[in-house]
Nucleic acid binder design. Sequence first.
DNA 1: TATGAATGAGAGTTCATTCAT
DNA 2: TATGAATGAACTCTCATTCAT
Lengths: 205, 205, 205, 205
Amino acid sequence: MAKTASSKEAILAAGRREFAARGFSGARVEAIARAAGCNKAMLFYYFSSKEKLYRAVLAGALGEIFAELGGVVHARLTPERFMERFPGIYIRFLARNPDLPRILVFDLIRDPENFSRTMAGIFRENSEFNPQRFLGMVRSWHDQGLIAEEDPLHFMLNVISLSIFSFVGRPMVEAISGLRSEDGEAFYRARIRSVVRLLKKGMLK
Amino acid sequence: MAKTASSKEAILAAGRREFAARGFSGARVEAIARAAGCNKAMLFYYFSSKEKLYRAVLAGALGEIFAELGGVVHARLTPERFMERFPGIYIRFLARNPDLPRILVFDLIRDPENFSRTMAGIFRENSEFNPQRFLGMVRSWHDQGLIAEEDPLHFMLNVISLSIFSFVGRPMVEAISGLRSEDGEAFYRARIRSVVRLLKKGMLK
Amino acid sequence: MAKTASSKEAILAAGRREFAARGFSGARVEAIARAAGCNKAMLFYYFSSKEKLYRAVLAGALGEIFAELGGVVHARLTPERFMERFPGIYIRFLARNPDLPRILVFDLIRDPENFSRTMAGIFRENSEFNPQRFLGMVRSWHDQGLIAEEDPLHFMLNVISLSIFSFVGRPMVEAISGLRSEDGEAFYRARIRSVVRLLKKGMLK
Amino acid sequence: MAKTASSKEAILAAGRREFAARGFSGARVEAIARAAGCNKAMLFYYFSSKEKLYRAVLAGALGEIFAELGGVVHARLTPERFMERFPGIYIRFLARNPDLPRILVFDLIRDPENFSRTMAGIFRENSEFNPQRFLGMVRSWHDQGLIAEEDPLHFMLNVISLSIFSFVGRPMVEAISGLRSEDGEAFYRARIRSVVRLLKKGMLK
DNA sequence: TATGAATGAGAGTTCATTCAT
DNA sequence: TATGAATGAACTCTCATTCAT
């Protein structure tokens, strides 16, 4: 990487790519170091183990995602506005950072405990997105008769599933359908449109 | 495993569990053999490599899923009926076979090419579910003005995302929300209800 | 090593030599395997870690020593007879097995806790030498007015020091004195004579 | 360490402790530096290698020991006086500097050649203790019929073994006997008494 | 005199795979 | 069909040492 960027940052970035591509066990410390343009030993100098580097990468990934979410959620948000904006912001963000959903999903499967712990830590440190506040908002939407879904957990599962699985599941659906979707921009635009329509029509009262 | 089951079957079953829990690279041949109650060498005797055992496991998993799907899709299916039945069947099936979604998603990320190839092979051998026929059906639903989504790829992404991500994403949403969902049956019932309602209200015209 | 000897034995023997020559940290797993005529991985196959191999070596060394001691100590032993025979048997045994005192002393310094634990284990399994019985014997010798030293701990320290330090300390004394002692047999004979005389004259009443 | 002590001194002291506890190979340069309160690089700045630092530590240890010995040996020394005073002085000195016997014994085993060379160097620079003069004294004691042991090498081995092995062998004897000796002062007093009595009774004519 | 960052060689350990029986 | 022993390559990690400042 650029000589100006500190080695630590370079390792973190390279680790993110490698872990996203191969998962924790599949990733090679050697490959990460090479990609970061430095010595294997530096990785241990800064992160002391592959595991800890991985945690740092995961924490970074989650941190970015929730920083992004913080921007969408604010006091006077209506459910309509939320459903119009969230999928676009989220899907575009994941498209710009394709490693993120992979790392998330890999870890979600491999070690859910660790995932939860890391997330809890993120929320503690990141004041921009407050999950409790958001949950309260969803509940009040239901109480005001604005949305059909009364359980905020399922509300969120619906929203997040549609957004995040767009990425992971795309090859699956392509394989099933035999259709190759347009690459890049066109696909995301269509995807966002489809999700927004489904959410608004399906969840607003 | 049981002395009655052949070693080969025992290895396949153990492999499925191990691969689901740790992914391809994370899985250990030794652990699979031990769990199968036999010698490491037997694994190579029957499957000749870890990679080939993995492919057999993945093929088995996909085969089961599409056999299940075959039961839902038939000539006179209406979209309403499809949306009422699919999530329930699919979610309950995945709940009974929790290793399946994990293996799918792991492999989807790790090696999408292989995933597609394996799927294509499945379709060739498995006459019960014909994706092309199903796609045609979705298109005709749209042409008849029964559904809002014109692109069958996004139609399927919507349906599948909501079902499969229920499993993978549950710990994520629990971590965000701080809510522990009811375990097992109650959760699945609620999940199915929510997905069916969303799909019917959101995608039917 | 001989093809007939099992690899496990060969590794144990090679480990003893290597640990004696270089201590625990100085010893190289690679070197042990090479000396044992087998692959590094075999060492882990049988002993699972360098540390555990080391413990096995130490336990073996201690076991041999106490098996030897068991031969000297019996019911009707007089202190005179003990002092006449013990140094000879012990010194000759250590001379035949020069790795033993080195390993003992290395470990005594490095990890006294581990040393004690290992010894305790040896005594439990090795019925030939019963330290408690021997201690009782020493006490009764003093009560009968046969020996001057009333504390059995110091009695043993005296006896053992003179025997074991003959080996470790020899290069030290040679360096101080500038004298090169005769190698091998002649030295041991002289050493045994000197120790026996000192013990008998100095400790018998 | 203390800001007043120069870094060089601090490193030497820390090195002595670390080498004594873990031997040459077991000692870590990093740990020494940390214990000395300074940077790893400083260690190389002052001593240019781990090996050279070790030699400096060993030389220091031996120097202190022989400086101490110089005080005991003087022209008109009688063997009786020597045996009365030497064990006490030596044992108390080692008790005050517990790292010394460990380093000595570690090195004695690991690299006797180096040990001898270092010792020779010490004697050349340290006029207070002249081993040749002392040996002549022992020989003349024998010629005058004052002591039983005619070989000065065995005379010294006897004296030194009993003193130095008190430290190294103590955990061994405690493990054998199951007795925990009194800690500290009481043990040393008893040990000195026992050694002095044995030497005087056993070696004086 | 002091430091944080960097390095290369090599350490212990793991792992898929094969062999002899 | 089954097994315990063996292997070589690769892996994560360590460590003495050096460099730039």
